[in-house]
Nucleic acid binder design. Structure first.
Lengths: 233, 233
DNA sequence: TGTGACACAAACGTCATACTTATTATTCCC
DNA sequence: GGGAATAATAAGTATGACGTTTGTGTCACA
């Protein structure tokens, strides 16, 4: 039997989760544990554990005598990394990508401002290094290498903010960046202006210029937002 | 047997979760399911389901032959509402409150700006109504009534932004507001300037003035931030 | 005919147990 | 001393039985 994850419950989770987030079971639908056990050819124990996790994401609600009910979208834990991943992989990917980008526009400039105050020398060095890496790979269709540096840059920036909540959003930013490169099929090299902005942000953080770091990062994020609007207005 | 939650697994979860987030089990500690089953006087099944949920929050990692290992703080899903709740109830409440307030400072102004563009007439009305309620209860030690309107105001604002990610952060804002009133023991009436700002935000959203709504909300949030710094510099 | 009490049944919740599997630690041989 | 075979351990899975809650239908009674 193909074991997608580590353990059967993980396999069930990775099947049921995407199904629900994709809207295959509309809110109010009831799933019965026995049926699920039969469908996935596993024991009730395994199903119950998977359902527990889905319940902890507020995707479903398990009640006695009624079954496992799919909850309405508004109640989902949309910050759960797995929910984000599933939705990005599903049909309403564009909507999700837009939500996340809006969130990013609010978060990253603030994180950059904090980073300018709190970043360690090591983090400043890493920032500069990755910005340079972006410059080096910004021409000649080296999109994959560019993406690596871009992702690392933003991850470092968020971490350097010193705020754990911001730091945990690096998955979100990484997903956005990866999505842009892989999904939108960027044939062209990255925008030179954006590359320059990254270099300048690294510089602003290094010199401790919080206002400038924040403003420059805002320009980067509104650029990303604009990119989305161009592709799906 | 006293049943704290709905079901035994919930009871175990509400015991183990806070223990871990409070740092009672330092990262690397291994918990064995059999011991836990014995300790809570429940079957292994119940423990396993609770552990699954803890694992989904990245609080622990379950591996064969080794046990359930507590993960380092940096890996926790700090956006999980339960993790937030547990940490707010625990010892590092101040740190957590600060993290959340920083997040709020980044989010709410952006949300207000979006609300000015997307808010429905109903939402505008609700906003104005709650702002008026805040005015009415801002004097004479009606702190509880004031809190209700304050919470409702911000919840409406976040929802009106039209961004599901922002909307899901209303719990966070509510926790911050509630915490300020209940924990910091506000003897004095709310700051009149803050009350005025809320009225003005409602007005700005109603008239669709995004920039003004954003700036006014920023003033509110930096005020909240300053309040924290005064209490624990 | 409408309403309330009551009994039934359906589905999840819990438990006990046996067995499987992966991983670590130990031992033993070269 | 190092590497391979082996044993020990704790989680993972399966199964069957029983408990508990709760939705629903029925029946009696007004």
């Amino acid at each position: 039997m193909e074991n997608t994850g580590q353990g059967l419950h993980a396999r069930v989770l990775e099947s049921l989760g995407p199904e629900i987030t994709a809207g295959e079971h509309c809110p109010g639908t009831v799933l019965r544990t026995d049926e699920l056990a039969q469908r996935f050819d596993v024991s009730r124990t395994v199903i119950r554990e998977a359902v527990r996790v889905l319940e902890s994401m507020h995707l479903v609600e398990s009640r006695r005598r009624v079954g496992v009910t799919v909850r309405p979208t508004e109640e989902w834990n949309v910050f759960d990394p797995r929910v984000i991943r599933w939705r990005l992989a599903g049909a309403d990917r564009p909507r999700q990508l837009r939500s996340l980008t809006v969130l990013r526009c609010a978060i990253e400039p603030a994180a950059a401002g904090l980073a300018a105050r709190h970043a360690t020398p090591d983090q400043c060095a890493a920032l500069t290094e990755h910005a340079m890496g972006m410059v080096a790979t910004s021409r000649g269709q080296q999109l994959e290498a560019y993406l690596v540096h871009d992702t690392a840059f933003h991850k470092t920036l968020l971490t350097a903010s010193g705020n754990e909540m911001f730091a945990r959003l690096n998955d979100v930013v990484a997903a956005i960046l990866t999505g842009r490169t892989h999904h939108h099929v960027m044939f062209t090299d990255p925008d030179p202006a954006a590359v320059t902005l990254h270099v300048q942000v690294a510089e602003a953080v290094r010199t401790g210029d919080a206002a400038r770091a924040e403003e420059l990062t805002r320009e980067i994020t509104v650029g990303a937002m604009a990119e989305l609007d161009i592709l799906a207005p």
